[in-house]
Each structure stands twice: as structure tokens, then as C-alpha cells.
Design a protein around this nucleic acid. Structure first.
Lengths: 230, 230
DNA sequence: GCAAAAGTGTTCTCGGTACACCCATGC
DNA sequence: GCATGGGTGTACCGAGAACACTTTTGC
């Protein structure tokens, strides 16, 4: 490996923790590696940062290559730089996390050295190569904190959704049960939802009302912050 | 500069935003640069990360070289990596912030290319070289958020202090006036203070009681988090 | 005695929490 | 008609916010 004492020779990469929501549970997008080390193991998607590429651009490039999504919210979480975190040389990595709506999303293998790509249930993941488990857990903690001060949901749910779906999402992120009446009171008081005056079809129980996020109010609430202590 | 398309050639540095408290105002530790670019201008202390040095070790090294302090709390805040942030080549920098007690602290010029070192009032700083102003402001925002969920004060105040001093500290960080009675009620309810049963001497007004942090309870409160909405 | 900062309680309001029953639909 | 999830209101409690006067010291 091309290392020396010259400071201008550390490698920089970006790793993405992309959360989705499906089946009432949180998922994360993993790729199956197509090269050593950890060939054929599932890991976080990442890539080296090009010398004349901004960090955030690199993170968006990875996400876009894998999912075709651009213009999505990405948040830098932390930089991991332990000397031995990458076995083949010094690689410092900047972790970003993102939230996207899984439904109807086509995934594509974005690079030659990727052998597979899939959504995995967060709670089933107990091992990942390198320090990726720590990275994922750090991003998960960030998401849990984020959900208390910013509205979350628009990014993870389909356009039209029921209040129960939104509640399940919050329960999945916070990892605890919420009271239905209190949740509804609270979420409606934020005034970021639009009542579509539509109901579910063909469900074998009383059909639920459908809601959508009011984009403008949602962004406003995001900008000024919310207090979601429930 | 030794750049090429080889990914293993980006430079990595660490910059520290070290906050102190004095004269009822927040200060930050700056160094006067002794080399181009921005020769003789005041900037954040920072240094290149050695190839076999962990990020946090590098941050501690900088702090220790300048202040002689080791074993201090440092928190990684964000990584700044715009392609053109450093005019002489690609340098990505990881920002850390720290809180230390100014009183009686001797500063030492820690490196040959540093021409001076001093505490500057945060509110007077409206320009810094590179993207250091943005870095400092990002760390300041982090501190403001931190103060709402973790006890702060032990690191910034002398061992013995009055409740008014502590209140001034919170007012400086949050940048707003607080109600004296509500502040005392709240801070005492956290049960992290020890009443020393001592009073100030030789002040030309009613002397205040002195308090100290109860280290154990302080660390406990830090670990479990607090809710300081005042 | 006066200037300066310390110290001290009560009331009101609002948001969080706990909690149980009837409703609409598909089969 | 029954299983399934949808939808609704009230009472209690505790924390935050507003607010003014007396006390102790040095000079």
C-alpha cells in the first residue's frame, strides 16, 4: 500500500447508512461485497472520495448509484478514523445517514465490485464487517434523537398513509409502544398533516383515513424544530 | 503539492474549538498563525493527523501541546471537506470541541509555526481564515444543544463557585437571560451540586454560598442525560 | 445609610400521561 | 355475526414561567 510519513496520504471514504421502513420495522440498505476483504459479506455501501469531490457529493453519488434517488436528505453523522479499522491500510471514513421510502423502489447494483443489494431488518443485524456495526448503531442513535426534534415520516412513508402507519414508524424508530390517542393528539397538533378525505379500500376492518404531509408546513416544522416527547 | 488521482492521497487534519468561560462571557482559544497562508492571523488550533494516529489522539495532542491539559472531554462535531476549503490542496478536517476551565491556566505556544496563543471572546469573532468561522459556529451550536441534555459547568468553572456564576455561564452559552429563582430551583433539582457551607469573602455585598460539583452525581447525570429546558 | 448582589415561594398554565369503549368493513 | 383494526375524550399531575421583596455585606 502506498503509505509513507507524508501527511498527504491517508485515504478517505464515505459510508452510507440508508434507513427504510417496511413491514412495521426499520430496514437498512446493505450491499454484498464483491472483493476482499470480506468478499461476499453484507456491508454498508460506501466508496472512496474522489480527490476533487466534496464529501456530501460523494455520499449522494453512492446513494444515487444504488437507488437512482438524488435530491434526498443526507446527514453527516460521524467520522471513523481508527488506525486499524480497515485492514489493508489507513482509511478514514465519513458516515452519512439517510431516510428513504422503500415502497416501489428498484435497487440496482451500482458498481462492479458489488454482488448484491438488499434491505435488511435493522434488528436482525448483529454483525457487519470492519467497524460497520458501530457505524450503523451510531446512525441509529442519531435517528432516534432526531425524531424527537424534527418531524420524520415524509421520507419513509408512501405519499398517502394512515395515522396507524405513522405511529408504527415512530414505534419502530423509538423502539417502544406508544398510546394511540396520545400519539394522534400530538401528531395532529404539529399541523404538518393534510387530511385527504379519503379512506383505505378493501381492508377487512373499518377503513382508515388517509393523510399526506403538507410539504410546506413539514419543512417549516423541520426548520424551527419540534418537541416530540411521547 | 503531492496530489494525484490516487485515492490514497487526501490530507487529513484536526481542528479544535476549545471553549472557556471568563468575565461572564464565552471565550475560544485561538492561535496566531506563523506561516502562509494567512500568516499572522488568528485561527483555530489544528494539525495534520499522523498516518498511524487515531483522530481523537490527534485532537488531544493539539490540546495538550497548547494547554498542557490531557484527560479532557473532547467531542467530535463534524468533518469539513469542501474541495477548496484549503487553498493549497485538498485537506479534509475533523472538528472537535472541548470545554476547559480558563482560570489559572498557562498557555504555551505548542509548535514552531505558531506565533501566539490567546483566549478571544466568541461574540467578538466575526471572521476567521479558511472555513474556521463556520467550524466554530457549528461547534457553538453543538454546545448550545448539548447544554440542554447534559450538565455543563464542571469543565468551565473553578472548583468552588456561586450559583450566580453558574447562571451566568448558562446565560452565556444559551445567549439569553434566565430567571434567578427558576434557575436555582431547576439546577438544585438536578442534585449534582454539593453545598460547601462556605461563603464568599470580602465582597462588598451580601456574600454568596459556594458550591462544588459532586463528581459522581455529575457523571451519573451526564450518562443518563438531563432535561434542561429553562 | 447606601450600593450591590444574594436569597427566597406562590400561582397559573399547559402539555404529558393514563385509560376503555363503540364503529365500519370483509368474510 | 365475528374478527380486525379505526377512531374518539376526559381527568390528573407535574414542570415551566412569571413575578417582588428582604437580607447581608463593604464602604
Amino acid at each position: 500500500m502506498p503509505f509513507s510519513n507524508d501527511y498527504f496520504k491517508s485515504a478517505l471514504s464515505v459510508d452510507n447508512v440508508i434507513f427504510g421502513f417496511d413491514d412495521d420495522l426499520l430496514k437498512v440498505l446493505l450491499i454484498k461485497r464483491g472483493k476482499e476483504p470480506f468478499n461476499l459479506e453484507w456491508a454498508l455501501p460506501g466508496a472512496m472520495v474522489h480527490p476533487s469531490e466534496d464529501l456530501e457529493i460523494a455520499a449522494k453519488r453512492i446513494l444515487s448509484d444504488l437507488t437512482g434517488i438524488s435530491d434526498v436528505y443526507l446527514e453527516q453523522v460521524k467520522t471513523f478514523g481508527k488506525v486499524d479499522r480497515y485492514p489493508e491500510g489507513r482509511v478514514v471514513t465519513v458516515a452519512y445517514y439517510s431516510l428513504i421510502n422503500i415502497i416501489g423502489r428498484r435497487l440496482s447494483i451500482g458498481a462492479a465490485n458489488i454482488k448484491g443489494i438488499d434491505w435488511k431488518y435493522v434488528r436482525d443485524i448483529d454483525t457487519l464487517p470492519f467497524d460497520h456495526l458501530e457505524i450503523m448503531q451510531t446512525c441509529l442513535r442519531r435517528l432516534k434523537r432526531r425524531v424527537r426534534t424534527q418531524p420524520v415520516g415524509f421520507e419513509l412513508l408512501p405519499k398517502k398513509f394512515t395515522l396507524t402507519q405513522l405511529q408504527k414508524l415512530y414505534e419502530a424508530i423509538l423502539d417502544k409502544d406508544l398510546d394511540k390517542r396520545n400519539f394522534r393528539k400530538k401528531i395532529l397538533s404539529l399541523k404538518v398533516l393534510e387530511d385527504l378525505n379519503e379512506i383505505e379500500k378493501k381492508v377487512s376492518h373499518r377503513p382508515a383515513r388517509l393523510y399526506a404531509f403538507d410539504h410546506k408546513k413539514y419543512e417549516d416544522a423541520k426548520a424551527r424544530g419540534i418537541n416530540f416527547e411521547i
